[in-house]
């Protein structure tokens, strides 16, 4: 009697506990640390504000780019990013589906997307119909320099001298759809307004920025947290590649591509970047250290009238 009772109760308990532990496991959580920066900086354990510069000893060639990245980019280009590129479907007049709604974006469904009532009217995008399909450099450009497919070859355009070697703008990601230009010193003078962004564990404040299409905006990014962070701007097409890395052991050993990237912002340090959205769209900014993004260090950068990416809030 005892044995049977124990067996049944045991099996039930084990099953319940397993369900509790695995399918019903609580979400990932890490409380933000209390700051030790002031104390430890005073005792020399961590570097002083502004002391750290960026080394050029280690090149990007040290880190590998997973082979899946290209596949992810292609997939995303074909799916989620479709609305940003009506030209690809051969129908330049199709109104935009809401980005990220998924079914509106698949190539085969482009026609359906065009008739979706909730699709916001964003057909007034300059130059969209002339965007090359796959970022090929030989495609005609609507406006020289606007297309960032060429930016990798233009150091002056791609980097900000005052930010040092860690600041980079990688134009080859996702072909020509990046849509955000990083402006250099001279053009940065055109900045109309300044947006201050604070990074801390584990959030950005503000969590989202809205800019007008074509507006030149200066972002002042400061690490107000306890540990180093980084700041990068990614096109929606990059998100599958990011998601692929999320829990992989080699996260820190691989390279990722971004429109703009500033590595190693030490606690207390800050930097500036001037950007311009060439066309309507949505992008994300984030800290790409493991789990920082999952814990909430991400924000959306959108043009007026565009909805932020779905799944932004993780």
């Amino acid at each position: 009697m005892i044995m049977r009772f124990w067996l049944l109760a045991g099996i039930l308990l084990v099953a319940l506990a397993w369900v509790l532990m695995v399918p019903l496991s609580p979400p990932s959580y890490q409380a933000s640390p209390r700051s030790t920066v002031a104390d430890y900086r005073a005792s020399g354990v961590i570097p002083q504000v502004g002391e750290a510069t960026i080394s050029d000893a280690v090149g990007h060639d040290v880190f590998e780019i997973p082979e899946t990245d290209a596949a992810h980019a292609a997939e995303e280009t074909a799916a989620g990013a479709m609305p940003d590129m009506p030209g690809m479907a051969g129908d330049a007049d199709a109104p935009m589906a809401e980005p990220g709604t998924g079914d509106g974006g698949h190539g085969a469904d482009a026609g359906v997307a065009g008739t979706m009532p909730e699709a916001p009217g964003m057909a007034d995008m300059p130059g969209m119909d002339t965007m090359p399909e796959s970022g090929g450099a030989d495609a005609p450009m609507a406006e020289p320099g606007t297309n960032d497919a060429g930016m990798a070859d233009m150091p002056g355009m791609a980097t900000m001298p005052e930010s040092g070697g860690a600041t980079e703008s990688e134009g080859d990601h996702g072909g020509s759809q990046a849509g955000i230009r990083v402006l250099d010193g001279m053009m940065a003078g055109m900045a109309g307004r300044t947006v201050e962004i604070e990074m801390r564990e584990w959030s950005f404040s503000p969590p989202g920025i809205t800019v007008a299409t074509g507006e030149v905006v200066r972002l002042t990014v400061r690490n107000a947290g306890n540990v180093p962070h980084e700041f990068m701007i990614m096109p929606p097409q990059g998100m599958a590649a990011v998601a692929y890395r999320l829990e992989r052991a080699d996260w820190n050993l691989t390279e990722h591509e971004a429109i703009f990237e500033r590595q190693m912002v030490m606690p207390g340090d800050s930097f500036e970047v001037v950007i311009q959205a060439d066309r309507p769209g949505n992008w994300m900014y984030m800290c790409m250290f493991p789990f920082h993004m999952q814990f909430g260090m991400m924000g959306s950068l959108v043009t007026e009238g565009t909805a932020p990416m779905e799944g932004m809030k993780m």
Partner: peptide, 20 residues
Amino acid sequence: FQWGFLFFDEDGAASRNAVK
């Protein structure tokens, strides 16, 4: 730090997750 390593060389120049 949580989660990664920064390396500073003798001049205070930093590199992320790699040191040469």
